[in-house]
Design a protein around this nucleic acid. Sequence first.
DNA 1: GATTAGGGTTTG
Length: 653
Amino acid sequence: MQIVPFINSLKENYHTIDVPATHYTYTPLNQLKGGTIVNVYGVVKFFKPPYLSKGTDYCSVVTIVDETNVKLTCLLFSGNYEALPIIYKTGDIVRFHRLKIQVYKKETQGITSPGFASLTFEGTLGAPIIPRTSSKYFNFTSEDHKIVEALRVWASNHISPSSTLLKLCDVQPMQYFDLTCQLLGKAEVDGASFLLKVWDGTRTPFPSWRVLIQDHVFEGDLSHINRLQNLTVDILVYDNHVQVARSLKVGSFLRIYSLHTKLQSINSESQSVLLVLEFHLHGGTSYGRGIRVLPESNSDVDQLKKVLESVDLTANQQLDGISLPEYEDSFPTFSSSGSVSLYEVERCQQLSATILTDHQYLGKTPLCDILKQKAPQQYRIRAKLRSYKPRRLFESVKLHCPKCRSLQDVPHEGDLDTILRDGATRTPDTKLQNTSLYDSEMWTTKDQGERKVAVHFVKNNGILPLSNNCLILIEGGTLSEICNLSNKFHSVIPVRSGAEDLELLNLSAPFLIQRKIHHYGCKQCSSLKPIQNLNSLVDKTSWIPSSVAEVLGIVPLQYVFVMTFTLDDGTGVLEAFLMDSDKFFQIPASEILTSDDLQKSMDMIMDMFCPPEIKIDAYPWLECFIKSYNVINETEQQICYQIFDTTVAEDLI
DNA sequence: GATTAGGGTTTG
């Protein structure tokens, strides 16, 4: 061993030898050579909090990075827990003295060498630069100060801040995260697991599970815990973490790394299902799993204490033993972020996310029984939505003819433009303008081949109504012109000049446009009547689509959602067809294609029925009314099912 | 005095 590092090591670690201050040099991480002993600085990119190794020492694995953008994974061992770096989170800055560089599997790594010593600093820009170390005496100069500051600046521009530190109110089911909390109680569960009861002053989106233990093994203030009710969570720690957990002091502040959440549904007495959130600290040290006690001086602990002190227990108690209506008042049905509030899923667990609009007297039938029976029949069922098709909303919107029952796609905007252009090739006939029904105006466009556009303003008893009550007939207009006019006028009907009268374009085009809604007619079932028939409408200001359609001989098509639901009640799986204009989802299918808000609502409803990233156990129940019917094709007879008389539960809309 | 672990989630 070289004498100078040896003396420095003694100085830093044992403070018994008085030698002059030594100048340390720090090797950039891109200049490390195997077989050397170096001093390095770095930003912590990853770390495992110290844990007892399978040998004799504590171990901490720390990966650091510096301005050279080179990473170094360090294996740090010490028989003394305190001698390992006191790292609380990634982004902390460390200084290692007497780190041995070696090569393992072609990778350079650092490992403690005799006399290893470390300092750790908070990585936050502007935070006070206070070294954390267990060494009583250590070398710390203004140059170190500068290095730490420079690394902080570099890290702030090159390393994304740690996102794994979460408050309990922000945890989601199925997640790994780091929790800063206070230990309220603990209990031995069995050899392989140990219970920690903790809180951080915020409430989880689902109530925590409650781990069953024998009363006498619990350590902690139960009356305090009872007062806190659902502000406390139960964490089960396993295997290697058990002995650490056993040694923790109630009341201490902890950081638990890579804590895992899992959503679990449990059956309660009243047949309803309740969702609870489980917290597991699994065995092993992968991903830095572990527990570290935070000192009272830690700034995160300081913040946590303030939160804990400010928790309003009276407000808490009002929420305990909740009756549903009060509970819902506290939480918006849909969160502003556009995602479904987890409380809602919970709410759906307890009741049902859909309800029947009729037939409530019917008893429920298990799907396995329905699948054995002949059609046609009607059933009330309770099932979960395992999956649905189509997944893309716009693919589920169709046009349905109630007369011939045909279904067709909604024309795309591009196609519609072509249809309108093709229908508008004839020049407006001036003989058909200015009748008793309407006043006419004609324009000739410039730079567009002298295209002529005629607009006929339909009068009400000989008088032109205000534009927002006025129906206009338009000849030769493009889609964008028609859309602009439909914003100003009550209704727009695209027409062309016929032999004797204005006539509708073919029924590939909408027969009536009101704001953003395009009304279509069935080509099969309609037999067009003259435009002048609009005269027979007594009130020429309300322009009800069905009335307009009727006088013009049109069978209007209905906008519908067409979807296939794969329903599962645990006894069987059944595919049911849903065709809905607005009764089921309470969203008008006619408006959804042009409304972002409605699309968002629809997405939220489907996410509620079929929550992403959650097991089906945790899905809400749907109460549905279904009809079975026979479908016969060339080769076989098949039984199909359709959902009827069912709607999304009112408080979920 | 060597060993420990050598980052990359349990399956409770």
